[in-house]
């Protein structure tokens, strides 16, 4: 299981550390897809990155809590263990496939590097496996792709290459950060189909970071909605669409044509770390906020699988 346990993250802003993620707890079991959904600046990407300690050296620090992969703390790992974790047990695919690939090396060089790092195999074996991986992600002509440089490939093909690279180390967990955002709709559809097929075939536990409820509807089993560094609602995917409880979840669903007949915008914008209001962090944008929202809302467990951070759900 991939577990985020009361994770607290701080970011450096104008020379001081301010909280960006406040005690996020999440569990991603193998074979399940968990969506982490919210607007930009809510802390979802840095939460995912912290699982591979990719935040280090970027003005971001973990101030508390833990992330464990199959029981082992990521923060207690030495360099060698971390190197084996990255792309081994836990792989990540990013939003922008061009920046994640190195433009001066061929796909062969980059794919073989990952394969040889994570498996005790010969170069010939690695070659064969690279071809097989590219076939698995739907490339009809793997030999040509292997010989190509990234800029010779279309956006959709680059994303497939990245998915192949993510699979190369034989991961059990996949972190996917807006994996389809920069792509055309028909290419998006093929990448979604591919991710779903691979996730099922390999029994991957997947954390899907996105602001797109369409992607959530397509891929997720469970959803955690994050706002201003806090999880405000958690539910099985069907319940999020049928019966959203947190005003922020409802408001997000009203922001897209798929889930709302007309645009009902949320006023203002998501506050940046350091600028969160006291009490409920959503209260200055919330249509139903009252006096009770001036103190921090409790986490209300609705049942085994559902919970919501809203005072309106408490004490009923």
């Amino acid at each position: 299981m991939l577990v985020f346990d009361s994770l607290r993250i701080e970011v450096r802003r104008q020379g001081r550390w301010v909280e960006a993620v406040s005690g996020v707890s999440l569990a991603v079991p193998p074979g399940r897809v968990v969506g982490l959904v919210g607007e930009s600046g809510c802390g979802k990407t840095i939460t995912a990155q912290a699982a591979l300690r990719l935040h280090e050296g970027t003005g971001v620090r973990v101030a508390g809590g833990d992330i464990r992969v199959d029981g082992r703390s990521v923060f207690a790992m030495d360099e060698e263990a971390l190197r084996r974790l990255r792309g081994g047990l836990v792989a990540m695919i990013f939003q922008e496939p061009m920046t994640a690939l190195n433009p001066v090396f061929t796909i062969r060089a980059q794919l073989l590097e990952v394969l040889l790092r994570h498996h005790a195999i010969s170069r010939t074996e690695a070659e064969a496996r690279a071809e097989a991986l590219l076939r698995e992600v739907g490339m009809h002509d793997p030999a040509r792709v292997l010989a190509s440089y990234p800029d010779a490939l279309s956006g959709g093909m680059r994303q497939r290459v990245l998915i192949a690279m993510a699979l190369a180390g034989g991961p059990r967990y996949l972190l996917a950060d807006e994996p389809t955002t920069a792509l055309d709709v028909s290419v998006q559809r093929r990448i979604v189909d591919l991710l779903r097929r691979l996730q099922k075939a390999h029994g991957l536990g997947m954390l899907l970071v996105t602001h797109d409820f369409g992607l959530v509807a397509e891929l997720c089993d469970e959803v955690a909605v994050i706002y201003a560094g806090e999880i405000v609602e958690r539910a099985p995917v069907g319940a999020i669409f049928d019966d959203p409880r947190h005003p922020y979840t409802k408001a997000l669903l009203a922001c897209r044509p798929e889930t709302s007949a007309e645009p009902i915008p949320i006023p203002g914008q998501a506050p940046q770390p350091g600028a969160w209001p006291s009490g409920c962090r959503f209260r200055d944008r919330c249509p139903v906020a009252g006096r009770a929202c001036e103190s921090p809302p409790p986490w209300v467990a609705l049942d085994q699988e559902r919970g919501v951070r809203c005072v309106r759900e408490a004490g009923s």
């Binding site: 559809r189 369409g214 509807a217």
Partner: peptide, 8 residues
């Protein structure tokens, strides 16, 4: 057909 689903 390529549009994402509106509901799971």
């Amino acid at each position: 057909l390529a549009q994402p689903a509106a509901h799971p």
